[in-house]
């Protein structure tokens, strides 16, 4: 293996950004969809954890990692539907339901996931995009999972959909004003339920990525709050799918900083390096916010920004 010296740090950040960002990307894209329709689903952390368990279990039982991804997406749809349907009832608080569903998803995943901690399920395949480089570290950093590429494609597709298609328009109208949507003859609740279900599916896939690719095992600690953090990143990304890509990459890359700095010998105060993603996000957030446009880009019906 080549000794990269200090170059190891940027290479590690690149690799880390690609490896770690995918779950953030999927969850935040799902949440963008849901929030653009005017609802907040804070429960995607639970969906992600359940998706991780369900995906791993199905992949192990069926022998196919892709079957696991599908199962995780389906589980996500069910959790999304549950949230969407409950929140369609009058006077029900979507944030509170989200928190309760976070608990439910996590609880059910832990409850039924016990037998799958030990077995080894098939992993999702990766594409070797680093074949051109003779440096093993670069090759490793550019070993990219298909889901990462799918996530980027999804972000591009969603950005286009929201801007230029009828579906996007409907979603935006529903998210900005229930009354306007009704006046257009739309059924806001049905559309919100659909958007929440789709968002749930994304979060389920994010969970499957965790358990089936990176770190690639199911355990109760598999998520360290990625789902919750990703929901928060949506505000950071100002409800824009393309911004979600940057936010996820920034967050993932910053997360790789801690181990990378230790590996080149900077190890004192390592907890502070590990806080880098949070500090960096907060810093960018403070720098880009302004008191006059606290909710710029926010859908009008969103309870969190009203």
């Amino acid at each position: 293996m080549t000794d990269l010296g200090l170059w190891a740090v940027p290479v590690a950040i690149l690799g880390g950004a690609i490896r770690v960002s995918t779950p953030f990307l999927f969850v935040s894209l799902g949440e963008v969809l849901t929030e653009r329709a005017g609802r907040i689903n804070l429960g995607l952390e639970g969906t992600l954890v359940f998706g991780a368990m369900a995906g791993y279990a199905v992949a192990y039982e069926s022998g196919s990692a892709w079957a696991g991804v599908l199962a995780a997406a389906l589980a996500g749809v069910i959790f999304g539907l549950l949230h969407g349907l409950i929140c369609s009832l009058p006077k029900v608080n979507d944030i509170a339901i989200g928190i309760a569903l976070m608990l439910l998803g996590t609880g059910l995943a832990f409850f039924f996931g016990t037998p799958y901690v030990q077995p080894v399920a098939p992993r999702l395949p990766a594409i070797d995009l680093g074949f051109w480089s003779g440096i093993p570290q670069v090759q490793a950093a550019l070993t990219v999972n298909v889901l990462f590429l799918a996530g980027i494609a999804l972000a591009l597709g969603m950005a286009w959909m929201l801007r230029a298609t009828r579906v996007g328009l409907i979603l935006r109208v529903v998210g900005d004003s229930t009354d306007a949507a009704r006046a257009m003859g739309l059924r806001p609740n049905a559309i919100r339920i659909g958007a929440t279900a789709a968002g749930g599916a994304f979060a389920g896939v994010a969970g499957a990525y965790l358990s089936l690719f990176y770190p690639g095992a199911w355990s109760q600690g598999v998520s360290s709050g990625q789902g919750l953090m990703a929901v928060a990143l949506v505000i950071f990304a100002r409800w824009n799918p393309l911004n979600c890509v940057w936010a996820a990459l920034l967050f993932g890359g910053a997360g790789a900083l801690g181990p990378a700095l230790q590996s080149v010998g900077l190890s004192e105060g390592y907890y502070l390096y590990y806080a880098a993603p949070y500090v960096l996000t907060l810093g960018v957030l403070i720098a880009t916010s302004s008191p006059n446009r606290a909710t710029a880009g926010a859908p009008g019906e969103l309870s969190i920004t009203k």
């Binding site: 590690a12 690799g15 880390g16 770690v20 590990y274």
Partner: peptide
């Protein structure tokens, strides 16, 4: 903390 453990392992491999 599985994700951090995986990242740490990768960093070690990158370091040779």
């Amino acid at each position: 903390m599985p994700v951090k453990e995986a990242e740490a392992t990768n960093a070690l491999c990158d370091a040779g």
